[in-house]
Each structure stands twice: as structure tokens, then as C-alpha cells.
Design a protein around this nucleic acid. Structure first.
Length: 894
DNA sequence: CGATTCACG
DNA sequence: ACGTACGTGAATCGT
């Protein structure tokens, strides 16, 4: 057996280190009571990472007792230049001690002494009693305590890494000196952070050299007369007192009047049962998940009435289908897929049941898709189903001939509405967010990335599925209650949930893409690109990778000597806005051309060809309904919301999008200026409202106001363009700088334009001020349908973070309300089309635009019907305006 | 896997 | 003195 282990931890130094390591995110680490937790998080990681694996026999965390110590008594200015400890850290000191206690470690502090002195004293007491001592600190000066029985661990990079010092390592760093000589070095060197002087002109390097020669400060001064005449010698003589003072201040005391006995320091190990409520108080979700995975029972803090239910899951077979038949009313259901894209992925298992009667799981898809009780329940509108991601569930089941209906609760969707910041798609992660810990994440169970694999073992697989279904059921009541408290029940039941199934139908229907046309474009583009490539290499004088901004930067800004107008984190920027300003250089013009064509080819031509389904010649996008911060949809795999339109060459891509039947047309319907109309409505600005009520050209009307033109003046295109930029700027949460950059003017002009704008549209001005105050007070902003976005940074100390939050506060109600409106229109449109039994299909949504495929005999009707439904989706104090276009391809529907 | 660039509203 | 327009997704480079 080795010696018993004594662990001494420098609480103050490490708390400061932990606090400042996460100082940039101090406002992100706040618990539900407003307590900052960044230092607590770091300290906890340290305790978990060091103490518990270390298994000490005795352990102590030492703290500073107060502001005054024997050092401040000896030297008035000691630490006199330190800023006051920030309040955000001060409030963490008590909980830090509690955390230490719950980790089974004794806290200690001593009046008039610093934590260092307690540690020094206890370290020596430990050595005398035969302990191997380890000291953990962020303070490099503690290395003076190292000896054969004392090792000092110093955290670096904040607190994530550790350097371990034995006498050999100290000698390495200090040019062969002993740990005790560290004090002598410090004496000569002084310490600016503790505000004590040392000898001027002597830094660490020189100090080490002198101590190597003279061993310590007293000996140095005994022999100082023999030293060669120099400025350094003069300083040493002049500042002799300072040297001795510094040396004294730097020396950690080994004889502090500590009232502790080693027996008081027995390490008690982690106090799990008490640590759980403590972590819950701090909102340490990850720690709680860890504890839950270790088998500790976590009961919800916000939901005491819903204690952990024991899992009851069994394999479903043809023999016990009767148990499924018995399920009524509220049924929890979950399907597992073997991939992300539910248009292609296979169902690999499912589970059905409820908390009272338990769960039945299976891999046998016949039990799902044949005429079984499972299918009957899923297709029964009267039986409420609770699921996680009903769009995925619906689409997947649809491919297995099951028509899911009667979905009442969608955990993913509700969780998103409650807080759009929690953008995880994983059931386990989301459950943990809501303080439910009886389920693991898929990453934990199946592995992530290349390691992903559905588990073979039935027992483990069914348990995971069962826990997922159980989590869905358990979270239904509390989350629905929260929706109600947020006044979001209508948003959920009237908009988001019905929309899910509208989107599912659009995705399943897909849109036809003409592969031949794309292949034609592919060969033409490939040819043009290889010609351009040759030209570019000639213009550059040698070959290089045109697609590498790094290589291009070297050529333009080093070899050719062009002036870099902008830089990025990693080097020169070569983006369009930079290159467009140097198009007189032939190479640059070629590069711009190349980039444009390469983008069209790789992202759109090749990209689309890759995702056309062989079976139906269509692409089936997936709309993400639970991702954006504003309530918009996003579209992936392929993204059909960013098909080129602004530049003709890219716009050609749209010719490949066709209706699914010959003779049909594509019809597009877009809201005109929906965001500005929403702005006029929300701000209730009279002038802006009148402009829309009179169906004026809003950008021209704005130009007349901000440039002081007559009411009937003709507005030239340049002024209109600037006014348009200002209108956009207002929607985005304007800044002088942003506007100046956008319209290419100076900041002063931009400021005066903005001032005039806000003066003219005084309702807008009033609203922007109010919405920021409102966000500060409530912590969130809302859309017209009560979609909510939290803005924790609205009170941030960082100017950047706070400004961003303020612009978001202005933009989100506008962008988000526009999203609400088109979502409502989509639901109504789908319902009207079904009711009228039309053959037309809604295919795509592009934020303010809907695209349909329409048979010849429904064209006239749809041109009338679609705008009617869209412009009456909600009643605002300004009219909504919708324009329609039709054509044989998407390109022609303009 | 982050950074850069560029496509859309 | 700070360093900015809002919201997205995909391809590519290079560590």
C-alpha cells in the first residue's frame, strides 16, 4: 500500500478561473431563479473530473475569509488594484460551498489568512503525518510548496487542462531551481496582479538568473558589492526593501493558526441523494442525466405529482394483439426509423401502449401494416394518439399503408412552441430539457455518426422504445399545461398541428423535376466551366484550385498585389462584395463568372439530380417545422426554398420543375410586401397603413417621405432603391452602419435617413422602442399568433450580444407574424381544396409564396380562389395583397 | 467539423 | 469604444 492521499483544493483561485473561463457566456448560465451558474458549472466539472476519480482519503477546499489579511496589514496596497469581485461571481460563492459539501469534501476558511496559507499549513501537517499530498489550484505561485511528498496541479486554459508539478517539473520550468527558490524569484520579480512591486527592470528571466547565481535574496544582498556596476545593480540597491517585502508577501505560510485536524478532512464521497435536488436547483440538466443513467431516481421539480413510473414493456406478437385491442382513448405511439430521411428510411420497430396498461413493442411490421388492432387504433380518429414528430410518423406510416389520424399530442412540436431555442430533434434530449430523465438519447443508445446502429438485442431495443413512448405520455399533461399558460393552445391546435399534416401531404406528393433538362444543363455548364478554368489559370499565370478562397486570396492579394478590402477570421475575404469592386481585373471577372456557374452546377443541377426519386421522377423535400427561431419553415434534402431566381442563368433551373401531368400548369401565388404590411399593422403607424390601404407603391411612398418629395412626385429608381433598403432595414432592426453599407453611403447620411424615417413613421419609432422595453421586461417577444421567442441576451453586458437581441426583438414579431399568416392560409387552402374535391395540389411554400399544380379545367377557379383564401387568412388593419402567375414550368409561372 | 461562400425570402 | 443588418441550407476547402 502506498501512502494515504490528502487532496487540498484552492477554492478561491479555481472559482475565479472557472468564472472567467466562461465570462463571455455569463448571461447564458442562469438558473430559473436568476442565479448565475458559470463558475458553478466549471467547478463542478473540476470536482467530477479530479476529485472523484482521485479517491482521496482526506480532502479540503480552502477559501479566502475576507478582504483583510495579515498581508494587507503588512502592505496597504496588497491586491489594491483588483477590481471588485463581480456580483455575478459573489452570488455563486455560497452555492459553491454547498457543492463542495455535497461532493463529500470539507470547506475551510480562516480569518486574516488566504486560502494559500491554509493549504500550505495543511500540506505540511499532512506530510508530517505520512500523507502523499496533492494541491489543486489555478495559482502558479503555489509551486513553491512542491516537494517529494507534495505535488501541485495547476489548471490551464481556464480549467480544462492540468499541469502536474513535482520537484523535477519545477526545476524544468525554473532553470534548475528548487521549489522554495520560487519565493526568491517572486521577491525580485514582484507581482503586478497582486499589486506588489519587486525590483524594477527585473522580470522572471532575470530573476531566475540571479537566483541561480546567488541562491536567495539575502545572499544576493550580502554579495551585492561584488556585482559589476550596472543599472540593474543600482535598482537592486535602491529597491532592496521592496525585494524583501515582495519576498515576504509571496511566501505562503506553513504555520497559519489552522484549527483543523486531519481527521476533520475525511473524504465522504458524493452525497448523491442530496446532490440531485441541488443540481435541480441549479438547472444542471446534463449532470442529472448522468445521475439518472447511473440508476438514481430523479423526480421532477416542477412536476412532483408525476413521479417516475416503472417501465412496463413487453414484446408484441401475433398472440398478444388482444392487449392492444384493449387500449382506449389516450395511446402513446412511437416508430423507429433506420435513417433521418423518412421518405426513404425503413421502419425498424414500433411501440404502442399507455402508462397504465404498459407498452408493447415489435420489429414485425406485419403487425403494423396488416389488418391488426395496431393499425385500427392508428387509423381511428376517435382514439387520441400521442407521438413524437407526427409528420415523420405520418409519412413513414403512409409508406406502410397506414393512414395515421387522431394525433392529439406531438412532443416535438409542443416542445418547440414552448421554446424555439431548444432545437434538438432527439426525444431523449427534449425529455431531459423538461426534467424527465427516464429515457436516454439516441446517440447514447445507437451511437452517433458512422457508429450509428439500431441495436440487435430485443430486450434493450424494446426497452428504449418503451421508454420513449412512456416519456411522450408522461410529458403530455405538463407540457399542454404550459402551452395553456403561454396562451399558445390555439397556436398549437389551430395552426401548427393541422399544418403538420398539410406539409406531410405536400412532401409526399412531391414535385416533378425533369431530369433530362438538368442533364442538358449539366453538360453545357461542365463545358463552359472547363473553358473558364483554362482561362483563369492563364490569367493567373499558373494552375490552382479556383474553389479555394485561400489559394485565390494568395494570387489576388499577394501575387497580383491587389488591395484586400476585407478580411475574414482566417485570411483575405474573396466574397462577391469584395470581388465586384475589382472587376476591371480580367481574372476577377472570370472568377465571378466561374463561381456563379459552379454554384448552379453543383448545388442545383447535380444536387437536384441526386435527389430525384427513381420511382416517380419527383423530389420530396422535408419541411422542418420545429427549427427556425421565428416560426418560418425550412426545407432540406433538397432545399426548395432557395432555387435561383434573381439571376437569369440560375433561374433556368426553374424550367426543370414541372406539373406531374401533361396539360397541367404550375401556379404561384405570392404575398406582396407581407412583412411591411405586418409592420404597418403591428405598429399601427397611420402613414404606413394609409399607404397600403391606398395600394401605393410602398417603397416610392417611403422615398417621398424620407427625401422630402412632393406627394405626387415621380420617384426615380435610385431613390426608390434606397428607400427599399431602408424599409428592409427597419424590418431587420436597423443600424446606421448596416444601412450605410447596404446603400453605399456614409454613416452620417445613413443616420439622418433613419432619423427622418422614424420621424415620418412615428408609429414605427414608438413601437420599436416599446418592443425592446417589453422584451427586457418579459424576456421574450411574440407574434400575432403568440409564437414566442426568448431573448436572454436582451440584458447582456456585451454591446454586441445586446444589440443583436434588440434587433431580433424588432424583427421576430414581423417575420414571425408573416409566417403565422401563410401557415393559416395553407391550412385553409388545403381544406378548401379537399372540400371542393379539386385535383389541384399544393406543392411548395417559399415563405411568402405558395406553388400549386393545377389541371387545365381548374386554372380559372384557382386564380380566384387562392388569393381569396390567402388574403383573408387573418384580418389585419391593412389589406393583404396576393398576386398569381401561371406557366408550364416554375420558370414560366412569373 | 468549422469556416467560407452563395442561393433564397 | 464597441462592430452589426433578419431568417435559412448546401457545397466546398482544409485542419
Amino acid at each position: 500500500m502506498g501512502k494515504p492521499k490528502l487532496l487540498l483544493i484552492d477554492g478561491n483561485s479555481l472559482a475565479f478561473r472557472a468564472f472567467y473561463a466562461l465570462i463571455n457566456q455569463v448571461d447564458r448560465f442562469v438558473n430559473h431563479d436568476g442565479l448565475h451558474t458559470n463558475a458553478l458549472v466549471g467547478f463542478n466539472n473540476l470536482l467530477d473530473g479530479i476529485v472523484d476519480p482521485f479517491e482521496p482519503d482526506k480532502a479540503l477546499v480552502a477559501w479566502d475569509a475576507g478582504k483583510t489579511t495579515f498581508r494587507t496589514n503588512a502592505y496597504d496596497n496588497y491586491k489594491g488594484n483588483r477590481d471588485k469581485t463581480p456580483q455575478e461571481l459573489v452570488e455563486q460563492f455560497e452555492p459553491l460551498r454547498e457543492m463542495v459539501r455535497l461532493h463529500g469534501i470539507t470547506n475551510y476558511e480562516l480569518a486574516d489568512y488566504e486560502a494559500d496559507d491554509i493549504i500550505g499549513t495543511m500540506a505540511h501537517a499532512g506530510v508530517e503525518s505520512g500523507y502523499a499530498v496533492t494541491i489543486v489550484t489555478g495559482d502558479r505561485d503555489m509551486r513553491q510548496l512542491v516537494d517529494d511528498d507534495i505535488t501541485v496541479w495547476i489548471t490551464k486554459k481556464g480549467i480544462s487542462e492540468i499541469d502536474k508539478y513535482t520537484p523535477a517539473e519545477v526545476a524544468d520550468v525554473y532553470g534548475g531551481l528548487t521549489p522554495k527558490q520560487v519565493i526568491e524569484v517572486k521577491g525580485l520579480q514582484g507581482d503586478p496582479s497582486d499589486n506588489y512591486p519587486g525590483v524594477p527592470g527585473i522580470g522572471e528571466k532575470t530573476a531566475i538568473k540571479l537566483i541561480q547565481e546567488y541562491h536567495d535574496i539575502p545572499e544576493l544582498y550580502e554579495q551585492i558589492d561584488m556585482m559589476k556596476k550596472s543599472k540593474r545593480k543600482e535598482n537592486l540597491i535602491q529597491y532592496k526593501d521592496d525585494a524583501f517585502l515582495s519576498r515576504d508577501l509571496a511566501r505562503i505560510r506553513l504555520d497559519a493558526p489552522v484549527t483543523l485536524d486531519l481527521d476533520d478532512l475525511a473524504y465522504r464521497g458524493i452525497q448523491y441523494q442530496d446532490l440531485i435536488p441541488f443540481y435541480q436547483h441549479l438547472d444542471f440538466k446534463q449532470q442529472l442525466v448522468k445521475l439518472a443513467n447511473q440508476g438514481y431516481t430523479i423526480t421532477g421539480t416542477q412536476n412532483e405529482s408525476n413521479p417516475t413510473v416503472k417501465l412496463n414493456v413487453a414484446p408484441l406478437t401475433a398472440n398478444n394483439l388482444a392487449h392492444v385491442e384493449a387500449l382506449q382513448d389516450d395511446v402513446d405511439f412511437y416508430v423507429e426509423l433506420d435513417g433521418e430521411n423518412y421518405h426513404r428510411a425503413a421502419i425498424v420497430g414500433f411501440v404502442i401502449g399507455n402508462q397504465q396498461q404498459g407498452y408493447l413493442a415489435s420489429r414485425d411490421l406485419e403487425l403494423l401494416s396488416q389488418d391488426t388492432p395496431v393499425k385500427r387504433i392508428l387509423e381511428n380518429n376517435k382514439i387520441k394518439k400521442n407521438v413524437f414528430n407526427s409528420k415523420e410518423t405520418f409519412v413513414a406510416l403512409h409508406r406502410y399503408n397506414v393512414d395515421l389520424t387522431g394525433v392529439d399530442f406531438d412532443l416535438l412540436l409542443v416542445s418547440y412552441l414552448l421554446n424555439v431555442n431548444d432545437n434538438s430533434n432527439d426525444l431523449g434530449t427534449i425529455a431531459h430539457e423538461h426534467n424527465y430523465f427516464d429515457v436516454q438519447t439516441d446517440d447514447e443508445v445507437y451511437g452517433k455518426g458512422a457508429k450509428f446502429a439500431i441495436i440487435d438485442n430485443d430486450t434493450d431495443f424494446f426497452e428504449h422504445l418503451g421508454r420513449k413512448a412512456q416519456a411522450i405520455g408522461a410529458l403530455k399533461q405538463p407540457l399542454m399545461q404550459k402551452l395553456d399558460e403561454h396562451e399558445q393552445t390555439d397556436l398549437y391546435t389551430e395552426i401548427e398541428l393541422p399544418l403538420t399534416f398539410v406539409l406531410a401531404h405536400m412532401e409526399i406528393n412531391g414535385i416533378t423535376v425533369n431530369a433530362e433538362r438538368l442533364l442538358g444543363m449539366q453538360s453545357k455548364l461542365t463545358e463552359r466551366l472547363s473553358e473558364l478554368e483554362q482561362t483563369i489559370h492563364q490569367q493567373a499565370g499558373h494552375e490552382f484550385n479556383i474553389q479555394s478562397p485561400k489559394q485565390l486570396g494568395v494570387i489576388l492579394f499577394e501575387e497580383m498585389g491587389l488591395k484586400p478590402l476585407k478580411k475574414t477570421k482566417t485570411g483575405y475575404s474573396t466574397s462577391v462584395e469584395v470581388l465586384e469592386q475589382m472587376t476591371d481585373v480580367p481574372l476577377v471577372a472570370s472568377i465571378l463568372q466561374y463561381r456563379q456557374l459552379a454554384k448552379i452546377l453543383s448545388t442545383y443541377v447535380d444536387g437536384l439530380l441526386r435527389v430525384i426519386h427513381g420511382s416517380d421522377s419527383k423530389v420530396h423535400t422535408r419541411y422542418l417545422q420545429t427549427l427556425t427561431q421565428t416560426g418560418r419553415l425550412s426545407s432540406i434534402d433538397p432545399n426548395l426554398q432557395n432555387i435561383p431566381v434573381r439571376v437569369e442563368e440560375g433561374r433556368q433551373i426553374r424550367k426543370a420543375f414541372e406539373p406531374q401531368q401533361a396539360g397541367w400548369s404550375l401556379l404561384s401565388a405570392d404575398y406582396s410586401q407581407i412583412e411591411l404590411r405586418v409592420l404597418a399593422h403591428i405598429t399601427n403607424d397611420e402613414k404606413m397603413r394609409q399607404a397600403f390601404i391606398n395600394d401605393e407603391d410602398i417603397h416610392a411612398a417611403t422615398a417621398r417621405r424620407i427625401f422630402g418629395l412632393a406627394e405626387d412626385a415621380v420617384v426615380d429608381s435610385n431613390l426608390r432603391r434606397q428607400a427599399k433598403a431602408v424599409n428592409f432595414g427597419i424590418v431587420y432592426g436597423i443600424s446606421e452602419f448596416g444601412l450605410a453599407k447596404n446603400i453605399g453611403t456614409d454613416r452620417k447620411t445613413a443616420k439622418s435617413i433613419i432619423d427622418t424615417y422614424l420621424n415620418e413613421y412615428s408609429g414605427v419609432k414608438k413601437w420599436t422602442e416599446e418592443i425592446i422595453l417589453d422584451a427586457r421586461e418579459k424576456g421574450y417577444v411574440e407574434t400575432i399568433a403568440h409564437r414566442r421567442r426568448y431573448l436572454p441576451d436582451i440584458k447582456a453586458k456585451s454591446f454586441n450580444a445586446r444589440s443583436f437581441a434588440e434587433r431580433t426583438a424588432m424583427n421576430t414579431p414581423v417575420q414571425g407574424s408573416a409566417a403565422d399568416i401563410i401557415k393559416i392560409a395553407m391550412i385553409k387552402m388545403q381544406s378548401v381544396m379537399e372540400q371542393k374535391q379539386l385535383k389541384s395540389k399544393m406543392l411548395l411554400q417559399v415563405h411568402d409564396e405558395l406553388i400549386f399544380e393545377v389541371p387545365e379545367d381548374e386554372l380559372t377557379l384557382m386564380h380566384k380562389l387562392v388569393p381569396e383564401v390567402m388574403d383573408s387568412a387573418v384580418k389585419l388593419t391593412v389589406p393583404l395583397k396576393v398576386e398569381t402567375h401561371e406557366g408550364k414550368t416554375w420558370y414560366d409561372a412569373k
